[in-house]
Design a protein around this nucleic acid. Structure first.
Length: 289
DNA sequence: AACGGCTTCAACCGCATTCAC
DNA sequence: AGTGAATGCGGTTGAAGCCGT
């Protein structure tokens, strides 16, 4: 009998009906004990699969939409601190799942490393993140805040700045639902799109992505200072070696990348980089050669 | 319109850790 | 303390969508 059930197990994408079943079962009985939950709910799924579907997708406080700039900054900062500790990083980004952050890292960050033909774990690339990418994000977050744009989350740069300033990061408020306390209510579905993804009636906190817009970028003293200021209070030596000149400008050629061609460079025009970034980077490379 | 390459991300897998008995 | 089950985590995969030709 048990073996027959195993044979019947479904795999692959979840159907809307399965989602409904899982959501409503959890609404009435709470989450946890996933294997028995799967059985009791009549889902032909493993407990693991149910847990994953709930935590990464169906949970009402899962935040969907683009990763905001301050979230990007936070991810970069926390990853530089903890490495691939996705769940730990996710705990500090409310509503974001470890899976989502992991995907962001692989699809965006690792892509940049690949385009620069360097290892994502290399000092070279870490320096790029630390001294180019992150200051750039800070600048853009501040620009967005100054213009009153709502593209970033309400806390905007302050959240990330707070993390950067505090070496000891306080544990986040955990996501809590004690078993069988049924803190969830059945979710009212208002729309089902063609990919069987659910749209909730509650307002999705989608953030428009600033990065779609053109932002005039040049690495100058002010942009360095922005990030520098965030770091100085930590008493860390963030600008060691000769990366930053006394005037605050980047030292030409500090990155030392080789063979970044135009084709690769233009591919940087995505979420975090635009053509000005690329021009600057290439200028540095040319100076170095 | 059709095709192929690329990107994204939901879902799976294996392993490690924690829990319950 | 030992053991099996449940849960958590990080790495990987593959289907779907997008985009250029």
């Amino acid at each position: 009998m048990e073996e027959a059930n195993i044979m019947d197990l479904r795999r692959g994408p979840w159907t809307v009906e399965e989602d409904f079943t899982l959501i409503n079962f959890i609404a009435h009985h709470g989450e946890g004990r996933w294997n028995s939950l799967a059985r009791c709910a009549g889902l032909k799924r493993t407990g693991k699969s149910c847990r994953l579907r709930w935590l990464n997708y169906l949970r009402p406080d899962v935040r969907r939409g683009n990763i905001t700039l301050d979230e990007q900054l936070l991810i970069l900062e926390l990853h530089s601190r903890w490495g691939n500790r996705w769940s730990k990083i996710a705990q500090h980004l409310p509503g974001r799942t470890d899976n989502e952050i992991k995907n962001y890292w692989r699809t965006r960050v690792q892509k940049h490393a690949k385009q620069l033909k360097c290892d994502v774990n290399s000092k070279q690339f870490k320096d790029t993140m630390k001294y180019l990418w992150m200051p750039r994000l800070v600048e853009r977050i501040q620009a967005a805040a100054a213009s009153g744009t709502t593209a970033t989350s309400s806390s905007a740069a302050t959240t990330a700045a707070a993390y950067i300033q505090n070496e000891e990061i306080q544990p986040p408020v955990p996501y809590v639902n004690h078993h069988h306390t049924s803190e969830y209510v059945p979710i009212q579905l208002t729309n089902i799109n063609k990919t069987n993804r659910l749209n909730y009636s509650s307002s999705d906190n989608y953030s428009s992505d600033l990065t779609d817009g053109y932002y005039n970028f040049s690495i100058d003293q002010s942009s360095n200072q922005n990030y520098s200021q965030l770091h100085q209070s930590t008493n860390q030596t963030c600008y060691g070696e000769s990366i930053i000149s006394p005037t605050g400008y980047f030292h030409p050629g500090f990155l030392g990348f080789q063979e970044v061609d135009q084709q690769n460079s233009t591919q940087w025009m995505d979420n975090s980089w635009n053509i000005d970034d690329v021009c600057f980077l290439q200028q540095q490379l040319n100076n170095d050669q």
